Amino acid sequence: MTGAADPAVLTEALRRELCATGRLLAAAGLVTGTSGNLSARLGELVVVTPAGVALDALEPDDCPVLDLAGNRLAGTLDPTSETSLHLGVYRTTFAGAAVHTHSRDAVAVASVRTELPPLHYTALALGGTVRVAPYATYGTPELAESVLTALDGKSAALMANHGALAIGPDLTRARDNAELLEWLCGVYIRASQLGEPRVLTEAELVAVIERSARPWRPEGT
């Protein structure tokens, strides 16, 4: 295929963005070595990171281009082992991008909790309480199904003894959500060291939603 119909041409900018996002995640410490993977959707096409390549060493041509059935349309390297999870995200959500990390605090929380409760109101950006998907071997349909169930209605899910998945309308938002989730996990760990964390109530979270929906006005007006 040539010209505008060539998937490699259609997705060139997205492949570059995937590489840039991988470098940002590595610099932030959310991925190390070849751990973690990313994807982004463009219509009926999905660009994913390849298997076995460190995210801070990616080049655009390294990133395979797939259709929603998983057929490889461009790229010479094998797609990430978590391809079934990424494709499942696009079949079941309106997400435009997905970020899977093995970040330290997310792994720690996901190794001891069945959910991450909302200690801070910014958890609302992820849907409030973050569920922890039961453990399954990486790259398996069982893991993909488990994580997609935990992700239902949320912008992120933790993966027991494994890591985390964050989604968003684009790579910037998905990366922001991954960073927020790691921060919230860190807050939970530190709060737990001091005592029993105080979890925000549903009424308190609703009040935040209502407050954010109101236009701001100077006090006294």
Rank of each mutant, 00 (worst) to 15 (best):
D6K: 01
R175D: 04
L73M: 12
L85M: 12
G128P: 14
A4N: 09
L18I: 14
C19S: 11
L77H: 12
A123V: 13
E196Q: 15
T32H: 07
N161I: 00
V130E: 00
A123S: 15
L171N: 09
A203N: 12
L24K: 12
P64Q: 01
D105E: 14
T101C: 09
G168E: 04
W216Q: 07
L194R: 08
A57E: 14
M1A: 15
R113I: 01
D62F: 13
A69T: 13
E12A: 13
L180C: 03
R198K: 11
G33I: 12
S81M: 13
D78I: 03
G43T: 01
V65D: 03
A174Q: 04
L126A: 08
A28T: 02
A20D: 12
G22M: 01
E145D: 13
E142C: 06
A74R: 01
T137S: 08
G33V: 08
A213V: 05
K154P: 11
I209Y: 05
L126F: 07
T140E: 04
V89G: 02
A133C: 13
E219T: 05
T21V: 15
V99D: 05
W183H: 13
T49Q: 01
T80G: 06
E219Y: 07
L205Q: 03
A164G: 07
A57Y: 01
A98L: 09
A26C: 02
T149F: 08
Y121E: 09
A27D: 11
Y135A: 07
A20N: 05
E82L: 01
A13P: 12
A95I: 02
S35N: 14
